[in-house]
Amino acid sequence: MNKKIVFSWDRLTYFLFSLPAVILYSFFFVYAVIVGINYSFTDWNGISKSYNYIGFDNYLSLFKNPNFWQSLEVTGKYALMLVIGVMALSLILALSLNSLKRFKTFTKSVYFLPAMISAVTLSLIWDQMFYRIAPKIGEALNIAALSQSPLASPKYALIAIVLVNIWQAVALPTLIFIAGLQSVPDELYESARIDGASTFKRFRFITMPFLVPTITVNMVLAIKAGVTSFDYAYTLTGGGPIKASNLIGIMIYNDAFQNMKFAMANAESVVLFVIIAVLSFVQIWLSRKGGVNGK
């Protein structure tokens, strides 16, 4: 009898433990998603007191809107450049840092410093760097393209923003790669060396298989960061010049709060939701195929 009462008290404790999380998450996350999807079927401008349901009209006009496609294209380019830059650099840095014998702690902490700073402050610093240093380099080397800040040029603005993003985003993947490298058993390298395998072959056939899970992790993080990026472009260019850096995140923000197209912005974010969901499923599918660890 006594035992039964204790048992039910415990069940109640567990239930109460789960309650704050479930309530907060349901209201501020799940309910928000539902409200957002609901808005995407209306013509609400975000301010007026009433609105009408217009079915899929927002989505239809979105798919006919060249600005939307242009924004998706810019976002795609941005994500691609970010992924390539982050993956290549962080792999190179991880291989370099991992084999370092002296000054390892110091070097690692310098390389991780950018991850501490807020994207806004960073962007403003780089804005100044581009503005003050690019013309000097352009003058010295006689490169016309660098006669002004690359952020002011429709041709180079996106690349400049990606560079700032990479400058910060390389830190964490580098550490993840180092963790992956340290999971490779040393015996494998030694026996390969005894068999006379070249440096490249050792990298290709020993290091790479162990890195596959970390490559997947880093790639997915970088793709998601690229597709949903906002802070850097918003601070550096605000989407310009002439929509050259009009990322989907910026288009959503501007349509919702500047252009009085609140419902349309919700439709845009639902499309982004679908893109991310598809990417996430690809991630799960890829990570099931796994590397050595099968993680």
């Binding site: 999380a21 501020f28 409200v35 597709v227 989907i248 974010s269 982004l272 996430s280």
Partner: peptide
């Protein structure tokens, strides 16, 4: 069952980019 459901329910958030909730959240 209850805990299985809330586990998957809470993990669903992994699939939702912030942009999806940011607009409704400002109104809420």
């Amino acid at each position: 069952t209850y805990y299985k459901i809330i586990y998957f329910y809470l993990l669903l958030g992994l699939f939702v980019p912030f942009q999806v909730i940011m607009l409704p959240l400002t109104k809420i």
